[in-house]
Design a protein around this nucleic acid. Structure first.
Length: 400
DNA sequence: TCTGGGGTCCTAGGACCC
DNA sequence: TCTGGGGTCCTAGGACCC
């Protein structure tokens, strides 16, 4: 029988920091005291990235501000994030789990799905215990494992009682184990969807499962259809062990103080472009489109994108596009101060897959940037003066 | 008290083509 | 001069995940 497991590290960032502290003897075990991994408030990075189980008992939640976490618990212990460390521990864990099966899909740095074909549910439980205890004994941290034959149910089950626990959630267990949970705990039911569902009188996952799906869909579109299916344990997503190509590569940064001038903005855009370029280079991608994102000091967001004339990868090229987009945004938002700038490369192509036809005449002639449409302007002028039929394309695949 | 950074997917509206 | 519907692509914004 097909078995899907969801394996999730308990308080991952916090556990991994603790294991490293124990190894190096340079810090405390944070797991059994109220503690958080948090950013630096002085540089406006002050949010909770991970919390210990004791910290959770104070009502501290991920993405709370560090300040509010300390208000809830003045004795809180805090450590800074270390993403390099997390990547190392993540690799070790995935490698260990692969010794059981290659049918592994990594869902994030600290969680994965595996799919197994086993004779019985008892066999599934036995293997889950082996994996859980193996990780604890060999790597020094604990995981929760959810077992089912559906991804969404395995995922939900792994979030039941923690830490170091295994739970099953098969279809016939749904009414008992899942339907009493608040709607907010359903996978993919975030703030906005939950609020809409509450507005419809839906308070639990069971309420949603037993509601009228046409009403749900009328209010939440295709997302509503998906949530209704999840609430009923319907999920045909497969465990996909093939690493998907990334759709985009980007970096953004919240600045320690608001940006008000181009003199402050340009160096940051330059740095972000250099970082994006280096990451693309490393993975062998070129970008077909560059996106610039801005978060203003009132937290409203704004983004602009532009296709590149030719696929780009160099820091200078990315920076040029990004700066023009920045100027375009700021022309429309004169005098506003900025909290965050992001640069993102999308429409990625593998560098070795670039066809030689890339440099075709239509690529050269096709105007791709608003501010650079000299050709278009000239054409418009001619048409204004001599009429629409005065000039036209000589070949179908050349778009004026 | 003062709100991160990395992503993916969906939708609505407009442009453009047939 | 006006009418039109379907399909596709692009952009900006929003929702969601960890």
């Amino acid at each position: 029988m097909k078995i899907i497991m969801h394996i999730d590290v308990n308080s991952a960032f916090l556990s991994w920091t603790s294991v490293e502290n124990i190894k190096t003897g340079r810090g405390p075990d944070l797991r059994n005291v109220p503690s958080i991994i948090g950013g630096d408030s002085a540089t406006r990075h002050g949010i909770v990235v991970a919390k210990s189980i004791p910290a959770k008992k104070y009502g501290i939640k991920t993405a709370d501000t560090v300040a509010s976490a300390f208000q809830r618990c003045p004795d809180l212990v805090m450590a800074p994030p270390d993403h390099g460390l997390y990547t190392r521990y993540s690799r070790e864990m995935m490698q260990y789990i692969r010794s059981y099966t290659d049918m592994l899909e990594q869902a994030s740095v600290d969680e994965c799905y595996i799919q197994l074909d086993l004779p019985t549910r008892d066999a599934a439980l036995a293997i889950a215990y082996q994996i859980k205890d193996g990780i604890r004994n060999k790597l020094g941290f604990t995981v929760n494992i959810g077992i089912s034959d559906k991804k969404v149910l395995a995922k939900t089950a792994s979030d039941f009682e923690k830490p170091d626990k295994i739970h099953t959630l098969f279809s016939e267990e749904i009414p008992d184990k899942m339907w009493h949970l608040p709607i907010e705990t359903l996978f993919m039911a975030g703030k906005s969807s939950s609020a809409k569902l509450r507005g419809l009188g839906i308070r639990t996952i069971g309420d949603l499962a037993n509601s009228d799906p046409t009403i749900i869909e009328a209010h939440l579109k295709s997302h509503g259809r998906m949530l209704y299916a999840f609430a009923n344990g319907i999920d045909d997503r497969d465990v996909n062990p093939v690493r998907e190509e990334p759709k985009g590569i980007g970096n953004s940064e919240t600045t320690s103080h608001d940006i008000r001038t181009v003199e402050e903005a340009f160096p940051l855009i330059k740095r972000l472009s250099a970082s994006v370029s280096a990451r693309m280079e490393k993975k062998g991608y070129l970008a077909g489109t560059i996106v610039l994102e801005i978060k203003f000091s009132d937290f409203t967001k704004c983004s602009r994108q532009t296709p590149c004339r030719f696929a780009v990868k160099s820091s200078e090229e990315i920076e040029n596009y990004a700066i023009r987009l920045y100027q375009e945004i700021m022309e429309q938002n004169l005098g506003r101060s900025i909290r965050l700038i992001g640069v993102r490369a999308v429409k990625l192509v593998k560098s070795e897959e670039l066809p030689p036809e890339q440099l075709s005449i239509s690529d050269i002639i096709k105007p791709t940037y608003k501010k650079d449409q000299k050709l278009q302007k000239t054409l418009d002028m001619i048409r204004d003066k001599y009429g629409e039929s005065a000039i036209h394309k000589g070949k179908d695949n050349i778009n004026f």
